[in-house]
Design a protein around this nucleic acid. Structure first.
Lengths: 242, 242
DNA sequence: TACGATTATATGTCTAGACATATAAGTCAA
DNA sequence: TTGACTTATATGTCTAGACATATAATCGTA
């Protein structure tokens, strides 16, 4: 079997080279640790210039599929840690993607000077104003998740006057504060009286909890806790790479 | 302010160009939708050849930070959906990373012809042999997670003779079957008698559940269910991008 | 044998061009 | 006004070189 596919040059050359190598790695023909042909060998094999194979190999290296070492060559990477790309979509998008009717209801909204608990939750030192929002998302009129959010107004002053009775704060923030970073913590709890009531489930029923803390270049933006009925909701993540 | 940093050329030129642009995007100086200077403008600004700025821009495009459109130019991408990279490490690695002593205990191991339930769980049609493994991971001698796993022997025949009394099946598989794909489902349950006993928690306590289904180029490898005490375990994911 | 200096080599980066191609924008006719 | 045609242009890909640099391998020496 030759490295060169005899298919017509439908995609570009460097993409064909990249795909050829990627296939060999993914099928296990070239196992972890295997040395990939040197650039000059690939140049000879594909009859192209070195920049072209270099581009293919560079992209494979950027995708962590191979490791390149000077003087030694390029090697199939040994899979290290499983990493799953967990897409945490806008809840509205998530529900409509399931083909269900999205419903939103603002339960409470308070503008206040940050309490000690607020500051702790947002991870900020200085006093300032915050908006605290409680709301509920539903799918086909069945409670889907309850949201308890705190927004730091010193970072997002516009949030003080935003109308959260129609638009969920998550969507609003997504459109007003781009390129944030966040940290998610996922855990499980059992529903207390208050939660059970909000989600219309039994007290003691399992709930999935997502705590998300969002910032933007060292400035705290928001902290949110999402509670899902544990037996009905699923977080699904596909991942690739051993 | 000039695009060109006056810092000495410590990193390479294309990396400086990439970093310059990335900084402007991440700080919001160039908001989503903003058009990045044309390649020929960057060529003039940095005094280099087009291939060099092209490499910088190509990498930014590969990282989904910008979008490149022929004839139109390059634009800062509008953040679409939040995606979190959830690193699901080997449990042993996870525990030792926390500075705690890792403990492993094989509870049960059965080699059998696949039952209907097994086939359903693995998503395979044909009959075949499987290994069913139950084991427990502990941190500082406290139960950390219980694992209930099924391995398809038609895909991984070596698993029939592997010694899982010392090495956890997850680690073993990671070293014997690289480059897999998987799907995770995360949910919450409350502990039943059996689970409570295995995790040394109270019946009715919350548990975090991770179901992972792993395959390799259309061949089923393994299905595993991991149960964590919901109040003690956290899945943490950092992510970037609005 | 062990260690330090030298050399060979694969990758890393870069240039100054070239042609291809998709497409935004402008032009012109129905 | 609308639709079809043309043109200008930014990106996409590629070449045939070049020098830089880290380092594996070799060689020489203590």
């Amino acid at each position: 079997m030759s490295l060169v596919t005899d298919a017509a040059d439908k995609p570009t050359l460097y993409k064909r080279i990249r795909a050829d190598i990627e296939k060999r790695i993914l099928t296990g023909e070239w196992p972890p640790g295997h040395r990939i042909p040197f650039e000059h060998e690939l140049v000879a094999r594909y009859g192209c210039s070195r920049m072209t194979v270099n581009k293919a190999l560079s992209e494979l290296a950027q995708a962590d599929l191979i490791e390149r070492r000077r003087r030694a060559g390029s090697f199939v990477r040994r899979p290290q840690h499983m990493s799953a790309v967990l897409k945490i979509a806008d809840i509205r998008a998530e529900i409509t993607a399931l083909g269900r009717a999205y419903g939103y209801e603002l339960i409470g909204r308070k503008l206040r000077a940050a309490t000690a608990a607020d500051r702790d939750r947002l991870g900020v030192k200085k006093a300032g104003k915050v908006v605290a929002i409680t709301c509920r998302h539903s799918a086909d009129n069945v409670p889907f998740a309850v949201e308890d959010r705190l927004i730091d107004l010193s970072s997002v002053p516009d949030a003080a006057t935003a109308d959260f009775s129609r638009e969920p704060p998550g969507s609003w923030l997504l459109h007003h504060v781009p390129w944030t970073e966040a940290e998610h913590t996922i855990s499980a709890i059992v529903a207390d009286d208050h939660t059970a009531d909000a989600l219309a489930i039994a007290v003691g029923a399992p709930c999935l909890v997502i705590d998300r803390y969002t910032w933007r270049s060292a400035r705290t933006i928001t902290a949110v806790r999402l509670l899902y009925p544990g037996d009905s909701h699923r977080l699904v993540a596909r991942f690739k790479g051993g």
